[in-house]
Design a protein around this nucleic acid. Structure first.
Length: 187
DNA sequence: CCCTGATTCGC
DNA sequence: GCGAATCAGG
């Protein structure tokens, strides 16, 4: 059973706490852990009593809506968590990558398919952004590059269409129909 | 447009 | 308890 998908197991909560305390954004954590959305992460974070941590790099504080019939004295915040020294993003990349690899083995596309496209003179590979898991956004191509077990592991990072985890180029490689090698003269 | 977190509320 | 929807801001 490694059904990872939903449900906050102890390990998952620990990972969440760790990544959150290290300064990763909710969406980054969500994509890193997989199976959950940033909303889920945020919801869990707040439920755990976290939040606040340090200053958000972006997305400043919000107001509790307009006329909130506040009946809930949510005085949680103000966690005595000193700002301390937040490690730079570069230092965490390896950790996050490992975490991802541990939780969700990267789906390695068929090497044959890769080679086929790579050697196709008609298809030109776009310049990949080569982003790390930290810089990966929801709409960035998650095509793995490099070895997941080493620090040079990163992703394509090109723009994707909503709902598709890859850019147009890598989508062709990833979603190659089983029956579509030859007889493609109607192109 | 992209992103961020916060909060509410139905399940 | 969970997370989508919504909100509010950068």
């Amino acid at each position: 059973m490694s059904e990872a998908g939903s449900g906050w197991s102890d390990e998952r909560v620990e990972l969440l706490k760790k990544l959150w305390s290290e300064g990763l954004s909710a969406s980054q954590i969500a994509t890193a852990m997989g199976g959950v959305t940033r909303n889920a992460v945020i919801g869990k974070v707040h439920r755990l009593g976290l939040s606040g941590r340090a200053k958000s790099p972006s997305g400043g504080a919000q107001k509790p809506r307009k006329s909130v019939s506040v009946a809930t004295p949510r005085g949680v915040a103000t966690n005595a968590r000193a700002t301390a020294s937040i490690p730079l993003v570069q230092g965490n990349t390896a950790l996050a990558a490992v975490a991802v690899a541990a939780e969700r083995p990267v789906e390695t596309p068929a090497p044959a398919a890769v080679a086929a496209v790579a050697t196709s003179p008609a298809i030109a590979a776009p310049e990949s952004q080569r982003v790390t898991i930290m810089e990966l956004r929801e709409n960035m191509c998650r095509w793995p590059m490099g070895d997941p077990t080493t620090a040079d592991f990163c992703f394509c990072g090109n723009r994707t269409t909503p709902g598709i985890p890859y850019c147009t180029f890598h989508s062709r490689i990833a979603y190659q129909p089983p029956e579509r090698r030859r007889d493609r003269r109607s192109n």
